[in-house]
Amino acid sequence: MAPPAHWRRAKERYRLLGSKCENCGSIYFPPTKVCPKCRRKGKMVQTEFSGRGKVFSYTIIHAAPKTFEKYTPYILALVELEEGPKVLSQLVDCRPEEVKIGMEVEACFRKLFEQDDEGIISYGFKFRPIDDSWRNKQSQN
């Protein structure tokens, strides 16, 4: 990926940013400049997602594009965010046999891909299962 292409998408990938139409309230990811519902009446603003969501569907990738070959087998999940939009992303810290539809997940920050040993490293969100077990343990103390 050329530096400008990497740079243009860095913010939305780093912070899981989408767009919201202030006219009708619709939320989009990836962010759009025009609201498909309101057209010229729409007023788009940037919105940051909570990062929490559920696995809507998933697949296990065994034969990956060259950039992702080293991660195989990996989980590619369609995550439905709390705010509504669906996001396609890798699911990490989770074995392929552990993933389930409806599983609660949260965004985490990981390396997405590298050009090569000397190229740009692209970072961004992936998802991992939510583990709130520490909250219960803490309240017991």
Binding site: K70, Y71, Q90, V92, D93, C108, F109, R110, K111, L112, I121, Y123, K126
Partner: peptide, 16 residues
């Protein structure tokens, strides 16, 4: 670390 973790990703998680 996982294959997709490095000093930057660890730092972001701690900072969050």
């Amino acid at each position: 670390p996982s294959l997709d973790e490095d000093t930057a990703t660890l730092a972001v998680e701690a900072a969050k």
